[in-house]
Design a protein around this nucleic acid. Structure first.
Lengths: 151, 151
DNA sequence: GTCTATCGTAGGGTGCGACCAATCATTGGA
DNA sequence: TCCAATGATTGGTCGCACCCTACGATAGAC
């Protein structure tokens, strides 16, 4: 049984492919971890954004991640339902919503961050600490360079 | 207009997330490139596998990539339709199909490999040649370690 | 005060990847 | 010779990312 057949060298030579494949590993694990708590990847991203800096509108929040504002509606709605976020109309512009973390949201974010760190540890297990640092540095630079929603 | 808002540091600290995000970059670009030629990511992967070593059955091929055999049917079917692959029943076991690249398939694979290399160049543009080597090495090791279909 | 633009929202459509059950031909062993 | 297992296939579901349109409420410019 050759179940341990290696991937073709020619395939492994394509960085975009390997990146996509390893990326799916990370995505799946993160998604699984979050699903246990009733959250999606976008939910987590938005939580960190709310913690980082309160957005002046949902539209700005959507732009930050390059997602469609109409898709953000569900994300924010879920966070509100779970009591992790709260919002009020901007008094200065009543079209906008000011969204912010609740104490429960901040606590949940802390928990999620811890679990994410544990997840990273298993994901990057085959690498030495130094190598992990190098990897995250390289990935951050790639992300920053290609950043916005530039597909 | 703060369209250039950075992603939250807490989010960038999660390797699994960054990996997923950068991975999507690679995936999208590869998929776009392949779509121009009527192919999917799996099609490309299978082409490289056929070139690397002829599988003894479609099931083995599916196992190599950890995908469902029923999903491989469409992939193989498309390659057959495009004349990139051919197959015949295994005389030793007529339940199995022996799939192989056609000359056209090999030529197409060469073309695709070239385009993939060009794509990699733009994707990894912000990195030095040495850094690119390091990155692919680290990614390969991650993939090898977690490999099978271990999600 | 009217007109245009913006914000949040509802609703719908697409494509892809993963997954599952059932079917038919074929095989190898009991 | 019959039976259980295997290979390829069909057909269907689910979830997710992405994208677009339309609409009511509000704001700002004129």
């Amino acid at each position: 049984m050759s179940d341990d057949r290696r991937l073709p060298p020619r395939l492994l030579g394509v960085s975009a492919y390997v990146l996509a494949r390893v990326g799916r590993l990370g995505r799946t694990r993160m998604a699984d971890m979050l699903r246990e708590r009733g959250l999606t990847l976008w939910d987590f991203a938005v939580l960190t954004a709310l913690d980082d800096a309160p957005p002046s509108s949902q539209r700005e929040l959507a732009a930050q991640f390059g997602i469609d504002p109409s898709d953000l509606v569900d994300v924010v709605g879920r966070l509100l339902d779970l009591g992790l976020a709260a919002r009020e109309r901007d008094p200065a512009d009543r079209r906008r919503y000011l969204v912010a973390l609740t104490p429960a949201g901040r606590a949940e974010l802390d928990r999620l961050t811890d679990r994410a760190a544990a997840l990273d540890a298993t994901l990057l297990a085959p690498l030495t600490p130094d190598e992990r640092t190098v990897l995250t540095d390289l990935l951050d630079r790639l992300l920053t360079h290609h950043d916005p929603r530039a597909v």
